[in-house]
Design a protein around this nucleic acid. Structure first.
Lengths: 224, 224
DNA sequence: CGTAAGCGGATATCGTCAATCCGCTTAGCT
DNA sequence: AGCTAAGCGGATTGACGATATCCGCTTACG
């Protein structure tokens, strides 16, 4: 779905380089976010900038190509969650799994969090995901496992709330964000009142300080 | 504490302009965050850039001057909270009030959130605040009103989690972040299992979309 | 082996921000 | 009233970082 039906198929070295660029982009977007430059990507791929610009008009094109597939994966997770019979597990699985994906891929997080990013195709997938979340929440509420004043849009804000935690602790204590997700989920569920065991210990104040200090900058620009 | 004991006291117009600059800076830092330029501030104050640079060597100097007082206010809130006899109220008052301050002042939020910012004086205040939080949490745990696996550093991350919510909803639905604070607090408290009534309704999906789309950019730079 | 396709990367272009400089104005003293 | 040091505005300079192009050299492949 990526190759055009042109007569000449593209020289072998050219398509190798194209793959290299895509790999490098995947890696860098995941690690540093969408802010990385095409130059960075080219260098990382071991090719010249010129090559990068010959294959992709600009960074956006690369992003759109790459993240359509990632977003579809998120959609798939939502659909799988809807197959889960237990409504609480369904909702938390969705949250846990998508946050995990976002944790491993800063670019994905940015794309999910900022509807401004991405082309029509990307928006398409986003549009398909929204109603799935609505359904997940509806089921959980109908089953009475979630407080009745919880709403689908709360899922969105929840996810964006985890972002700064992920960013500041990614290198030092990877799973800490799950700790806060747990607090949140315990504040949402209505089935019983035992606390969920926390999946990660709290950070010491020293580590917390380091985390805040060395927080990676988001790297993305745009608008005034 | 701001006037030097120099012989010549400073011309009247000069000190008027200085005040104007400070006012403008307070306003812009609060509204747009620490990323605003001295040029912006000068224009907002209705004076030339030259004047700004004559009064303050650079933006940092202005920030340090302005935020020492703001941070002291945060410290005061923590001390007041410690006077509160009920440990749960003490802890939540602190969180609620400081988040409210941060909500009204993006610059304050940035300073609190990023220990890299600010000079020695600022760090001084920060250092004085930390043990107060430790004490607030200790009391709450001793009283058994908070789950026993909650730790002081959790307060820090909590605050930074609220940031993206504040930023994206500030203009559209000012108090929504309190909704998420409530979810979180309900996930933390161990006294009973009634849910706290949510202080703000959920956002509709349309408004949520708008919020995410028009999220103000953080405006601050620094490092690679 | 000829040549169109591809390549690298130096470089032009643009935008943003910090900071300076200098000709003009004015407060405040005598 | 007149003088002058202090202050003023804001155009301008310089540093930087990112995007995107251009062109002389290399290489795949018919």
């Amino acid at each position: 779905m990526t190759q055009a039906p042109s007569p000449r198929p593209m020289r072998k070295d050219a398509s190798i380089n194209r793959e290299r660029l895509l790999d490098a982009a995947r890696e860098l977007f995941a690690e540093k976010g969408l802010g990385v430059t095409l130059n960075d990507i080219a260098r990382h791929a071991g090719v010249g900038v010129g090559t990068a610009y010959r294959r992709f008009a600009n960074k956006e094109e690369l992003i759109d190509t790459l993240f359509e597939e990632r977003l579809q994966a998120v959609e798939a997770v939502a659909r799988e969650a809807l197959d889960e019979p237990d409504p609480w597990t369904a909702l938390t699985d969705y949250l846990t799994r998508t946050l995990q994906m976002q944790f491993g891929d800063r670019g994905l997080h940015q794309i999910l969090d900022d509807p401004t990013l991405g082309d029509a195709r990307i928006n398409d997938v986003r549009t398909r995901i929204a109603p799935l979340i609505v359904e997940l929440v509806r089921r959980a509420k109908d089953a009475g496992v979630v407080r009745s004043d919880f709403e689908p849009t709360d899922v969105t804000f929840m996810q964006s709330a985890m972002a700064p935690i992920m960013d500041s602790t990614r290198d030092l204590a990877p799973q800490v964000y799950e700790r806060y997700l747990t607090f949140f989920l315990d504040g949402i569920r209505s089935d019983d009142r035992t606390f969920t065991p926390l999946p990660a210990p709290a950070l010491s104040s020293e580590i917390t300080h380091t985390a805040m200090t060395s927080r990676r900058r988001s790297t993305s620009r745009r608008r005034a």
